[in-house]
Simulated scan of single mutants.
Amino acid sequence: MLNSGYIAGVLRNNDPVKGICYIQQTRSENHMLPIHYDPKKSPIPREIKEWDLIMAFVHADGAVEGENRIAKLKSIRFEAPNFMHLGDRFRDDFMKKWSSAVHAAAVDSGTPKSVTELQAMPGNENDARLDSFDWKVMDLNKNASNQIRIAGFIQAKSLQRNRRHPVEGTPINDRLVVLIRQSKDSDQSIPVRWYGRNLQPLAEKLVRGMPIVVSGEFRIDVKALSLPDPDTQIAPVSKIPFIQAKDMPAPVSQDSGLIKIIPGWAAELFKSHGNGQTEKPADEDRAALFETAFVPQDGAVVQQPGT
């Protein structure tokens, strides 16, 4: 089943003994992205040090921690971003994340030298970059610094409507969580979230056992547990890693190659899916769902996800 992605950012807190590092894409250290790896099979190159830019090519997995479903990424290869990667698209996407204001009561890393150099990089295109396969692939993606694509079977879903901001009490977007299963162990299902103003039509379309493909970003859902410490002004938080979908899911056809075989456990889920397919063409149906869930009405403001 399709399972691939890459994360680019600033290398932080590498622990080669435990096989975990963090890739930072915002100035807030609360949102550093944990990346697991095998120190023997896919070590971090020696020339890449703390605060340097790094790219991790990853596979996604799921796990259960306490009462939470989380997403986990494991790197199969690390690289230093090269000249083919560092184009206008990469720089703009990454700098937009780095400059975003999130969680004031957290450690602010400032702007390391590697990010300053990236920001100052000239944006002129050149033949070498445009002709490179890497750049063409990067240019097709919606975010050149954080991209995950997975295909699998829907294990379960949960829709939360009429949500309100926990502090301000104002209405916020619906949240739909779908567990995408790729293995025999259902506890390894990958949690994928959608945020939008009306996700009920999408939730009704996504039924248990349906094979779908999703594109998204790896993110951390951060919640403050108490008020900031009076001395440090840092608030303790909980952190839940997840995949945030960036588009409508697409159904997986048998000849697509996105899911090459249907194992026994998936066949049982698939039976519950039945023949309830829509008669509309897939692209037309996805476009209609997108309009319903994400296009604001006149004068309306769609709040950003992350709550």
Rank of each mutant, 00 (worst) to 15 (best):
A235Q: 08
S75Y: 10
R193V: 13
R286G: 07
A156C: 10
F153P: 08
D108S: 06
N124L: 02
V301C: 03
L140M: 14
K246M: 13
Q254S: 11
Q25K: 07
A293Y: 07
R164Y: 03
S186W: 01
I262V: 09
A71F: 15
V10K: 01
F153Q: 12
Y6A: 01
F83C: 07
R175C: 04
K205G: 02
P112F: 01
R69Y: 14
P34L: 11
F90M: 08
I154Q: 00
S42L: 02
K239P: 05
P34W: 10
I261F: 14
G123M: 11
I7G: 07
T170L: 12
D134W: 03
P171H: 12
R175A: 03
E125C: 05
A80R: 07
D93I: 04
K239F: 06
N126G: 11
D283W: 08
A267F: 12
F133K: 15
T26A: 15
L73M: 14
P251C: 04
R69S: 13
R164P: 00
A106G: 15
T116Y: 01
F242G: 09
A71I: 14
R27C: 05
A104V: 04
K239S: 15
I70A: 15
M248A: 13
F90C: 09
P81W: 08
K96T: 12
V222G: 06
S42W: 00
A106H: 04
H31A: 09
D174V: 08
K184S: 07
D88I: 14
R219M: 03
A80S: 11
P230F: 04
G299S: 10
L269R: 03
S114K: 05
F218T: 06
L11K: 05
A8Y: 09
I212E: 03
R91P: 00
V302C: 02
K239E: 15
S109P: 01
E291A: 06
V237Q: 13
Q155D: 14
A293W: 07
G5C: 11
